[in-house]
Design a protein around this nucleic acid. Structure first.
Lengths: 257, 257
DNA sequence: CGCTTTATTGATCCTCATCAAGGCGGGTGG
DNA sequence: CCACCCGCCTTGATGAGGATCAATAAAGCG
């Protein structure tokens, strides 16, 4: 195969559009991941990347639009949303500073869904044509791209199992732990962080209603697992939180028996 | 990117293993898709393919095993199962005659989960190394491979939305309609077919318990949507079955108060 | 044929959705 | 600057949709 994703045909630009009922705010003063924090950005950034600002509520890209670029979130946060024919919509992920967006176009020539900024954000736009060209000459970049693709698919599968086999409290615990782990991977605190999304958006990701999310957060707090005030979360007892779930990670290797 | 999936390193063969409590049977007399029926097999088959028989309950491949080959189901049926750390297991799909197996290794060098024969089956094994080599010279094959990959990802996403936003009756209706459509695409009847899997396996795919699946099938029958006798299904009112999906949203506008 | 697996159906329980009523906070306009 | 408004969150009450438990029936398999 020549390319892992698709040969992008440069055509129309994707204009950010404000969805009805949402207004952008002004200041962008989000924390930026510390230097040297892990992540794919280092390799990716070596390809010419253009900076782009997306304000709260604006689309970074829309489902069905030509796949032209990957994006590294430099500051802020996004959600990706899948749209169905019958008007159903489902959040498929949240993407924080340091993470990559656009991989949902894998295997297609268009983005699978919308990417919407949860707050005023800042991304590096990496034209895929250039990336692909460069990757052809640099095995390390090639491998990195491939690794990212794999983990995106892995992420979706984990979500599938979560939705298919976990109870509400397990889902939320898994969500919090996942967020914590990702924050840590980006150099932020694993124990204290701010939710960038609403309860409803969390619910959409987890297949729950917003009231259920709210109630469970309250319950986790009274049980001493977390502290929650509005969108600020502090994890107080990570082991207990883990114990809420019967682990969710997908098994990579199997025991011979 | 050089290959869309991974450079397979020919190493250990994947031995079929009988899971505890299941025993293989003998006869293979499944229907074979009629000549000329749609499907990727035609292109794929041009690569040297070896025939392999897998008996009911046996593994075609196991999760974590080296990705070495794709498989086209020639006769019979399979389920693919994802396994988690804590022993949770979830069916991720059913695969009938004419369909391709092994694509779950996308983005990785190992299969994501187990592929288990639901009945005595027959597959064409297509070593990926050879396939990849040939695809490099044949753009048509290249495109076909890519298309298959894309639809596999699409399939998983659809399942995600189903699990995240549909109610039990909608899930089952969607499942039956999907099966019907796939049977038709393979040249079988869209209205009458045989379920190759248990109620429990259907439930696992849909995030439901087996009793719920059974009850809903019974209800669909009394409502005249289908006829069901054991594993034989006849769809009696496909439009009504389609209408089951999304019934909830309509209900919303019903009661002004 | 006997045994095991699978399916149906009923009764009951419980999780989570739904409906409803404030409360908090941030942003905005007077 | 204050009052108001609107989006977001919390919390309660209620009930429905599925899960669970249980008993039986029917098939499939050896």
């Amino acid at each position: 195969m020549q390319h892992a994703i698709h040969m992008p045909v440069p055509s129309r630009a994707i204009a950010p559009v404000l969805p009805a009922g949402m207004k952008g705010t002004s200041s962008v003063e989000r924390a930026v991941p510390p230097e040297g924090a892990g992540g794919p950005d280092l390799l990716l950034m070596r390809v010419s990347a253009q900076r782009r600002r997306v304000r709260r509520g604006e689309y970074l890209y829309r489902g069905g639009a030509d796949f032209q670029a990957l994006y590294v979130v430099r500051a802020g946060a996004f959600k990706t949303v899948l749209l169905t024919e019958d008007g159903r919509e489902q959040v498929t992920g949240f993407h924080m500073a340091g993470e990559v967006l656009g991989l949902d176009a894998i295997g297609s020539d268009v983005y699978a869904g919308d990417a919407v900024a949860l707050e005023d954000s800042d991304v590096a736009e990496i034209p895929f044509a250039a990336l692909e060209e460069r990757a052809a000459r640099e095995p390390a970049l090639q491998r990195e791209l491939w690794r990212m693709l794999a983990s995106e698919i892995q992420r979706e599968r984990t979500l599938m199992v979560l939705l298919g086999s976990m109870r509400a409290e397990e889902r939320l615990a898994a969500f919090l732990l996942n967020l914590s782990q990702r924050m840590a991977a980006r150099g932020f605190s694993a124990n204290r962080f701010v939710l960038r999304m609403t309860r409803e958006e969390i619910g959409s990701l987890l297949g729950l209603k917003l009231e259920t999310v709210s109630r469970l957060l309250s319950r986790f707090q009274t049980e001493g697992l977390i502290m929650v005030r509005h969108r600020e979360i502090e994890i107080k007892a990570i082991q207990a939180l883990r114990a809420v779930i019967g682990r969710v990670e997908l098994r990579r290797e199997r025991l011979p028996h």
